[in-house]
């Protein structure tokens, strides 16, 4: 038996909105420690990794490791039927080919039940190596979203450069070019407004803006985002989910031949 109740059901809605343009089907890998999802886009350019610890759910019960394959279209349709303040309970019995969703309003007056057929998803599971990054930059998530949106008006690619002076985003195209510099903040009122730059080595990488703009659909999940960069390596964009999980996007760089 698998059962997990998320008090803030809106978190699930936001997670699905954040990935539905990148992947069509996902496997929920459920174990006693929590739920994880790994999925790649069809072009094998980016990967989504969701990790949710069991402590984010009340109750959480997973008697045996179970993989639940779901089509995002059906999942998206179902979760849209939940109100933002509803709790969402996910239930699956061993040996059945359905997953159940129960939505409960805060006062308990309204409950809704939905069932989705499980799918057998044959997905390639990648081993993500532990990486020591050249630079790790934490910034407000709306700022990152704005930069990606603005830069995509100029070109298809964005160059991200970290030096001791800060982080620079630049793009160019037929129309012209643009550069945005961010420096480490000194004094800010709210921690979530802070720009924090950890630099081990200067790094300079190019990425496709199309994917970054998909990743920023996760902005409603968290006020902050972390960009982890390493020369000639995939970028890791991390959105924390409360204090019990995270959504990470990995994007392969563009490299000169």
């Amino acid at each position: 038996m698998f059962e997990a109740r998320l008090i803030q059901g809106s978190v699930l809605k936001k997670m699905i909105d954040a990935i539905k343009d990148i992947v069509t089907d996902i496997n929920l890998d459920c174990s006693s420690t929590g739920i994880s999802v790994q999925a790649m886009d069809s072009g094998h350019v980016c990967l989504v990794l969701i990790e949710l610890g069991s402590d984010g759910f009340e109750p959480y019960r997973c008697d045996r490791n179970i993989t639940l394959g779901l089509g995002l279209k059906a999942l998206s349709v179902v979760v849209r039927c939940a109100n933002n303040d509803d709790s969402i309970t996910i239930k699956a019995q061993e040996g059945t080919d359905n997953i159940n969703f129960v939505f409960e309003s805060p006062n308990g007056e309204k409950t809704s039940q939905f069932e989705i057929k499980l799918m057998d998803i044959d997905s390639e599971h990648l081993g993500i190596p532990d990486t020591e990054y050249d630079s790790v930059v934490k910034m407000p998530s709306h700022e990152f979203q704005r930069i990606c949106r603005d830069m995509s008006q100029l070109g298809d690619s964005i160059v991200v450069a970290c030096t001791k002076d800060g982080i620079q985003f630049s793009a160019s195209g037929d129309m012209g070019s643009g550069k945005i510099n961010l420096r480490q903040s000194s004094l800010v009122d709210k921690e979530e407004d802070q720009i924090n730059i950890e630099l081990n080595d200067p790094v300079h990488l190019t990425f496709a803006l199309r994917y970054l703009n998909y990743f920023t659909k996760a902005t409603p999940l968290s006020p902050t985002v972390t960009l982890s960069l390493k020369a000639e390596s995939p970028l890791c964009v991390t959105y924390p989910i409360g204090d019990f999980g995270s959504m990470k996007f990995f994007l392969a760089p563009k490299i000169d031949d």
């Binding site: 350019v45 599971h125 990648l126 994007l251 392969a252």
Partner: peptide, 14 residues
Amino acid sequence: GPAQRDLTSFFKTA
């Protein structure tokens, strides 16, 4: 311009 890399060339299949 630079060419888009495949993610699987960086991450091994588990």
